[in-house]
Design a protein around this nucleic acid. Structure first.
Lengths: 334, 334
DNA sequence: TCGTCGGCTGACAGCGCTGTCAAACGCAGA
DNA sequence: TCTGCGTTTGACAGCGCTGTCAGCCGACGA
C-alpha cells in the first residue's frame, strides 16, 4: 500500500503550521502570498495529494460522492443515464459511485446500504422493486434521493421520467393515421411502471379510435429480446394477425424485428418502437425517441438542488418524447 | 444533512465500550454471545449505519474503492467493460468509482488526481493519451494500476487487451477466402493503438496474399459513425472501388453500412466489422467478436491480485477474438 | 503617543472509527 | 488455596484533516 506525505509533512517542510498548509491547499483566503508559495512548492516537491477521505470526515462525515443504483450498466439506456449524471455532477465537483442492482430488489437494498455507509451525499435510483421501505426511512432521516425512469411507488421524492403516456399516444395515433386498426403491442414485464403507462395509453387511444377490443393484441413479458421475439411471433401467427406492431421498449423492438424477419411477409408489417437506438436510423425503424442523457443530467441537477436546499418542494420532471418517422411506421396495412 | 447515530451512541445504549461495539459490528471474535446480541439490538433500534469513510481512515487511509477511468460511459463498449469490472469487484467487497475522460488526456489527468485524493485502492484505466507521466509516478509510488483495451506506452503495468492482430488477420483472411482482392479498410484515429495493430495486420495479410498495394484502400479517422460514413463513401466512389470492406470498429461498421446503403449496388459489397453489436445479428453483419464484459472482469481480477501481492510479475492478458459469419462477409466479389 | 482594526498565523479539539495493549474475569490444574 | 491461561472487555492513542478561536503583527486615525 502506497504511502503518501501528509499535510503535516508538507507544513513542516514549508515551515508553517498544519492549519496554514491546509488553508493554502484549499485555496482559502488570508494567507500571505509568500507563505502560499512556500507551501505550494513544498506540496509539489513532496508529491503531496490531499486525502479527501480524511477531509470529508473532518468536515462532518459526508463525502462529495453521489451514488447511482441502476438496473444494468451494460444496457445502453442505463449507461446513457449514468453518462448524463456524471457530467452534471462534475460541474458541481461531485463524483459518481455506480452500482448495478441487476433489477433485483434485494440487491438494490444491500447496495443502498453500502452506499450509505460510504456516506454518499445523495442517491439516484432507478427503482427495481416495489418495496422501498428501506429507502423511505433514509429519506425521512434527511437523505437526498432522486428516482429516475420510474417513480417509486408511494414515496414523495424528486422524480425524473419521460412522458410515457404521450409517447405511447403519439405512436399509436401514428399507426392509426396510416390506416392500421389491428395493432399489436409487445410490452415489458407487466409489473413495470413504464409498461403500465404505455400499455394503458395504447388501449385508451385504441378505444377512442373505435377499436375497443385492442387488448387481444396486447402482449407483455418482453424483458429480453428473445422473449420479445417469441411474443411477436405468436402474435403474428394468430388467426387475425396485426398489420402493425408497437414495440414498447428497445428490447421489444429488436425481438419484434427478429420475429418479422422470420415470418413470410413480415417486412410488410408496420413497426414503431419505443426508445431510440443507434441503428434504428439505418434499419429505417420509426421510433418514439427521447433524451436519456438529459434525463440523467436532470436527475443529478435535482439531487444537487435538494442537497443545497432540503426543504424545496418535491419536483416531478417529465421529459418529452417525439415520434421519429423512418419508414417502418409509415407502411400501410396490407 | 442527515445525522446518524455513531458507534459511541450504540455502545452507550448497549452498555458496552466503543471498542466492543466495534468488534460486534465488524464480526470480530471474542465477544460474549449475550453482549453481541445486546449491541446488535441497540444498533438496529437506533438505525445505526457504520461510517465506512471513518473506518477506512482509521484503518490506514485506504478506501475499498476502485477507480475506473473510461473514454465514454455512453459507449456500449465501455459500459460493458464497466459492467464486468463492477461484477468482479463486488465479489471482493470492493466498490467501483467511475469517471469519463471523454478521451481527453488532460481530463484523464485531472480525474486521476481526484480518484487518488479519494484514496482508491487501485485504478483501472483505458488510456486516452500517450503521455502517462502522472500515472507513472503513482505506479512507482506503489499504486495499483491496470490498463485495459489499449496498452499504456512505455509503462510496465498489468494490461488486458484483445488479440487485435489475430482478429484483423482472421477478418482479412475471411474476405480473401471469399474471393475478394480489393478490400477496403475503414479505421479509427491513426494514433490509437488498436487502429495501428489492426491496420498493420490487415496490410501484412494482404501482402502475404499477393496484394502488395492494399494501402490505397486504407482509410483512417473513423472515430464517429459520421466520419466513417464519409470515408467509406469516398472509398466506394474511387476509380477502382473495393468489393469488400473491413470496418475496424463498431462506429466504423455503422458508418460503412450507412454509406453502402446510399450507394447503388452498395448492398453487394461484402462487409466484416470489428466489434460485435447487438443488431449485427439482425442485420446479418459478419463481425470479429470478443467478450468485453470478460475483459472488464479480468482487469478487475488483476487489480485485486496486484493489490494483494504488489510484487507479482506484471501480466499481459490477451483475450481471443473470433469471426462470426452472418452473411455480409460471405458475399462474393461482384 | 495610544487604541483599534484587519490581515495573517497557529494551537487545539475533534470527525467516527480501529489497533494496541493492558486489565479483569472465569476456570482448570497443582 | 494459588497459579496459569484463555476469553472477554475497555482505555487510549491515533488515522489526516478542518473548524474554532485566540494571538500576533503592522498600519492607521485620533
Amino acid at each position: 500500500m502506497i504511502r503518501r506525505p501528509t499535510l503535516a509533512v508538507v507544513a513542516e517542510a514549508a515551515g508553517v503550521s498544519l492549519k496554514t498548509a491546509s488553508r493554502v491547499l484549499n485555496g482559502e483566503p488570508n494567507v500571505a502570498p509568500a507563505t502560499r508559495e512556500r507551501v505550494r512548492d513544498a506540496a509539489v516537491s513532496l508529491g503531496f495529494r490531499r486525502n479527501a477521505v480524511a477531509a470529508d470526515l473532518a468536515r462532518g462525515g459526508f463525502s462529495r460522492l453521489v451514488g447511482f443504483i441502476t438496473g444494468d450498466l451494460a444496457n445502453e439506456f442505463y449507461s446513457a443515464l449514468a453518462s448524463g449524471i456524471e457530467r452534471e455532477l462534475r460541474e458541481h465537483g461531485l463524483q459518481l459511485l455506480t452500482a448495478s442492482s441487476d433489477e433485483d430488489p434485494e440487491r438494490e437494498g444491500s447496495l443502498t446500504g453500502e452506499l450509505l455507509e460510504r456516506r454518499v451525499g445523495a442517491l439516484i435510483v432507478t427503482p427495481a422493486g416495489a418495496d422501498h421501505s428501506a429507502l423511505r426511512g433514509e429519506i425521512a432521516a434527511g437523505l437526498t434521493v432522486v428516482v429516475v425512469d420510474r417513480p417509486a411507488a408511494g414515496m414523495d421524492v424528486d422524480t425524473v421520467v419521460i412522458d410515457n403516456r404521450g409517447g405511447a399516444r403519439a405512436a399509436t395515433l401514428h399507426l392509426l393515421e396510416h390506416g392500421h386498426r389491428r395493432i399489436g403491442f409487445v410490452g415489458d414485464e407487466p409489473h413495470l411502471w413504464t409498461y403500465q403507462e404505455r400499455s394503458a395509453e395504447f388501449l385508451a387511444v385504441m378505444a377512442e379510435a373505435g377499436v375497443p377490443d385492442a387488448g387481444r393484441w396486447l402482449r407483455s413479458g418482453a424483458h429480453s429480446a428473445a422473449a420479445a421475439r417469441d411474443l411477436a411471433a405468436e402474435l403474428l401467427a394468430s388467426p387475425e394477425p396485426p398489420t402493425a406492431v408497437l414495440a414498447a421498449n428497445n428490447r421489444a423492438t429488436v425481438g419484434t424485428l427478429q420475429a418479422l424477419h422470420e415470418v413470410p411477409g413480415g417486412d410488410e408489417v408496420a413497426v414503431v418502437g419505443f426508445d431510440d437506438f443507434e441503428l434504428a436510423d439505418l434499419l429505417g425503424i420509426t421510433v418514439v425517441a427521447y433524451d436519456a442523457v438529459e434525463m440523467g443530467r436532470r436527475a443529478a441537477e435535482l439531487a444537487v438542488a435538494r442537497s443545497a436546499e432540503p426543504d424545496r418542494p418535491v419536483e416531478l420532471v417529465v421529459l418529452p418524447t417525439r415520434v421519429l418517422p423512418r419508414g417502418s411506421g409509415e407502411r400501410p396495412p396490407r
